[in-house]
Design a protein around this nucleic acid. Structure first.
Lengths: 249, 249
DNA sequence: CCACTTTTTGCCGGAATTTGCGGGAATTTG
DNA sequence: CAAATTCCCGCAAATTCCGGCAAAAAGTGG
């Protein structure tokens, strides 16, 4: 990986997460810590980041502390994203929806990963586009402004023509009896198609949404292969899902 | 392989992958590294790529700090956008490409306008999404990272199925003899399809690009209905185009 | 067809950049 | 305070860059 690429990647990470650790960067980018240190030194000299012992911070981090609730939910989603990343292997075709958890996943992709991401979510496309090596395929159709994803028959048809290795689904509500449910008709049509077009369906959700309901069903529990939450895999809240034979991460 | 061919190949690679390595290029094209280095130097001098130690990066890669105020000759583009807006009427279906001029147009749309915009450009989609009343249709396909638009056969097919009222084309080079020309093969395919699928073709270009050339032809002068520049409509620089029967705004 | 110019290309040697490594200092943490 | 981690400095190896040079290729004009 070229020096400038590393710099761009580091800057991107700093701007997204407000901090980076030298130790995690050097395993992400696969170079020695010295190289990372030199990169951070240069970026620091240019005023692009603030170097601290062990890593670097965003320059805009000065005094601005974001609200505790935001920090809290974000770290949860980050934990989920980390687990999700471990399922991805080079060369995979991966369908994803939108949603903030998916965006966090997009931001956590290791920079040397070579995979193809397929989505109709414009914010997700933006994140994927920043990645140096992954390919992005956009599902086209009419934009739903509220959810910022493409919805409609064309989009559903396109997804049906695909057979992906993985499907990451950000989930609004999940319940042992009713499966995944949601509240937007068009979005549900898309999610259904995505589930049918994937070999493996992975649900990402914060624990807060477990055992909640929405009006429209996306799929039953039986169609889910894996659930990822910020909780440890053996948490009792997930016991019922484990008993259904679903893998918990 | 001819020099021009190499340049086109290199540009294509850069547009697809956002970077090229001198070392991999010289085995791909089967020439010495020195030749590659000279090629990259020339392309860098033309601003087509950014040369770095070990290869080159896409110029858009550097635009991490993409802020509208830093767009090249923005005031001219704003003037162009104002004129272009006057062509749009309620209920129209409008095909647009990407490019900074198109983005300026998207920002200049009057808030009560009710029209349908169709594009494969992700930045353009973002702008259109902010608008309260217009509908946005996204052309799906694989993302070309540097141009940030979807390119490929699917996208071309989709466009062919459409018959739009208007097509706004951001233009890289226009010449009375060679028509509109560009330097990215995939982007040219899209533009060609857009032109064929529109009742009226409108070119947006800053005066600087008039009478310039790029390697690949998009269309001849005869296929253009209207040209919009920041110059007054009767400027002598546009006389030749007026004589071809093209409307000048 | 032949001389002549221009462009392009490959090669060479020295300079510059980048990167990893080791040793010792500095900082953090418990 | 002591252990662990991180930082800093210098060095060496590998890679890449650059300018100049000559051969090959392509274009030119008689």
């Amino acid at each position: 990986m070229l020096k400038r690429e590393r710099h761009a990647y580091i800057l991107h990470q700093v701007n997204l997460h407000n901090k980076v650790l030298s130790s995690s960067l050097c395993v992400d980018i696969q170079v020695s810590e010295d190289t990372i240190r030199r990169d951070l030194q240069e970026l620091s000299d240019q005023g692009k980041v603030i170097k601290v012992h062990g890593g670097a911070l965003s320059p805009s981090f000065n005094e601005v502390y974001y609200s505790p609730s935001q920090v809290y939910s974000r770290s949860e989603k980050k934990a989920i994203a980390q687990k999700a990343v471990s399922l991805i292997e080079d060369g995979m075709f991966i369908l994803t929806g939108g949603g903030s958890t998916i965006l966090e996943l997009a931001r956590s992709l290791p920079p040397q990963l070579k995979a193809t991401f397929i989505t109709g979510s414009i914010p997700a496309v933006l994140e994927y586009m920043h990645h140096p090596t992954i390919d992005v395929i956009v599902i086209g159709d009419k934009i739903s402004k509220s959810s910022k994803i493409t919805v409609g028959g064309e989009a559903v048809d396109k997804i049906r023509q695909i057979k992906a290795d993985l499907c990451f689904l950000g989930v609004n509500a999940i319940d042992i009896g009713h499966g995944i449910t949601d509240n937007d008709w068009d979005v549900v049509q898309l999610k259904k198609a995505m589930i049918e077009s994937s070999r493996k369906v992975v649900c990402l959700t914060i624990a807060e949404k477990i055992n909640t309901l929405q009006p429209i069903q996306v799929c039953s529990i039986g169609q889910i292969d894996t659930i990822i939450t910020e909780l440890p895999a053996d948490d009792p809240a997930l016991q019922a899902y484990r008993e259904e034979g679903i893998e918990i991460l």
